[in-house]
Amino acid sequence: KAKLLVLLYAFVATDADTICIGYHANNSTDTVDTILEKNVAVTHSVNLLEDSHNGKLCKLKGIAPLQLGKCNITGWLLGNPECDSLLPARSWSYIVETPNSENGACYPGDLIDYEELREQLSSVSSLERFEIFPKESSWPNHTFNGVTVSCSHRGKSSFYRNLLWLTKKGDSYPKLTNSYVNNKGKEVLVLWGVHHPSSSDEQQSLYSNGNAYVSVASSNYNRRFTPEIAARPKVRDQHGRMNYYWTLLEPGDTIIFEATGNLIAPWYAFALSRGFESGIITSNASMHECNTKCQTPQGAINSNLPFQNIHPVTIGECPKYVRSTKLRMVTGLRNIPSIQYRGLFGAIAGFIEGGWTGMIDGWYGYHHQNEQGSGYAADQKSTQNAINGITNKVNSVIEKMNTQFTAVGKEFNNLEKRMENLNKKVDDGFLDIWTYNAELLVLLENERTLDFHDLNVKNLYEKVKSQLKNNAKEIGNGCFEFYHKCDNECMESVRNGTYDYPKYSEESKLNR
């Protein structure tokens, strides 16, 4: 008799109507990190870190770059004969040098303040090359056809396309004075040089004057150069050297050249137009028929994500570079809930034993079982409120962090190594801060989002509990077992918050 009662009780308990509160689960393989956990499985997430590029040089917003090819900045601007293909260059979106560009200054020497000139050019998007001192009329008392084997072109001695090597005419090199007034309405880049012979005999042979000088002056520039005559090792078949100089001439300003020898005179100059998204990159990537809004030396990035880990040097509207390998923000729920887990921000989770793959029309909802059958029903209101809140948060985070910009490298010469090392340390410090901030932001927001979901499920549970009161009992896994019969209409009233407690209280009292 006792065995019969136990079996009867078990049958009745199993047959009781139930309603459970749960949440969506799926077959997603997404994982995120939080402050407290690593690799948390979630139903949905968004990636904030771009880690792919196309490996190509592309047009930037429809404008092609200027590819210097086998030449570098120095060779292009001075007019190395091997860089003749660059003479027609007028406009570009950015400038590309190759790491091993070999054609710079063909006659050995240095372009002074080269690093600063590169910085200036990094904001130039177009130029006009014009004859600042016409070759045939500007130097009537001097020979202007100086050439050298060091600047050979097609097997013949030649010289820079933008400079003139002035030497004596006959047996004399009379003092020369020439000036140019900038009437271009924009900055003009003027380049010139000073020749330093290897011996007094060479000085006399070329310029006749043993104590020659070169003077260059404008409103913002004033220097006097004296040739340094000295024996030097042979470089590119030359014992002599040429140093090259430049200045930016403001609109309306005048530049005056005065010399008694050794002047490498300007022939062509450049009127410059600035462009905020221009820059110089060093890259071996090849040019393709493609378009982008962000270019790196590795390749083009076409992404609206706020961060990238491809390269710190970028041109155009680019994500911020960070050292992170993963920045994924959760938008959905835990896919593998932890039992009795309390989140960092106070939300209680884990009283549900598992997510439901059968509930596909919402994030949170119900599963019921009664004599009429069983089924899932999503709670659309709480789901939609959660979707709206999380979507707004993700968009806000992306908008705040998605300050796209150009980031170019800084140039230092060989004598500025300590400054370069200090600059690298400062840049590394800023990069570490950006990386830390980005990672911390994602970790915190992921923790908040998961706790937010847990709290929403808990609130749904409490909503049902407050309606049923003692007409049902909690069975410990997020479910309630009714003390009365609850048909589909009754189940719907529980879900929509209109459950009639008094209607079922007498039946429940008897069954309790």
Rank of each mutant, 00 (worst) to 15 (best):
I264Q: 02
C71Q: 08
S28R: 03
R118G: 02
S152T: 14
N145H: 12
I73Q: 06
N262I: 04
V214S: 00
G22H: 07
V188L: 14
S126Y: 11
Y173D: 09
N39L: 03
Y23H: 06
S219N: 14
L176K: 00
K135M: 04
L49A: 09
Y245R: 00
R154G: 08
W246M: 05
F133S: 02
P108L: 12
G146N: 12
A16L: 04
D30Q: 15
R223P: 00
G146D: 07
S137N: 15
S45G: 03
Y114F: 08
N72T: 14
S172V: 15
L191N: 00
A105E: 14
E37I: 08
S215A: 14
G210I: 09
S172E: 15
Q204Y: 10
S157Q: 09
G279S: 12
I21L: 15
K168P: 00
K186G: 06
W267N: 14
E131A: 05
I255G: 01
L66W: 12
L5K: 04
A231I: 14
A230C: 05
D33P: 11
I63C: 08
L164W: 05
L4A: 15
G75N: 06
C151M: 05
E102G: 11
P99K: 11
G240R: 05
A271T: 15
T18M: 08
A265S: 12
L164C: 05
N145Y: 15
I229D: 02
L60A: 02
N183P: 00
H44C: 05
I255R: 01
S198G: 05
G79L: 02
R236I: 01
T260W: 04
L191I: 15
G55Q: 05
F144K: 02
R118H: 14
K186M: 09
P251A: 15
S152H: 00
W165Y: 04
K135H: 05
L66M: 11
N178T: 14
W165V: 03
G170P: 00
D201G: 07
P108Y: 04
S205L: 12
N178F: 14
I19E: 11
T177R: 06
Y268K: 07
E277F: 07
G79I: 01
L57S: 06
E277S: 12
V46T: 09
G279P: 09
H142L: 07
C106A: 08
P65G: 12
H195D: 08
I281N: 06
L272V: 15
G155C: 07
G170F: 12
E102F: 06
F144C: 11
P174Q: 01
G22Q: 04
S122A: 13
V32W: 00
R274M: 12
T98K: 06
K1F: 15
Y180I: 02
I132E: 04
N26T: 07
K186I: 14
P197W: 11
H239D: 00
L36C: 13
P88L: 15
N100V: 02
Y244I: 06
K168T: 14
A41S: 00
E250T: 12
S28Q: 10
N72P: 02
P233I: 13
K156Q: 07
S199L: 07
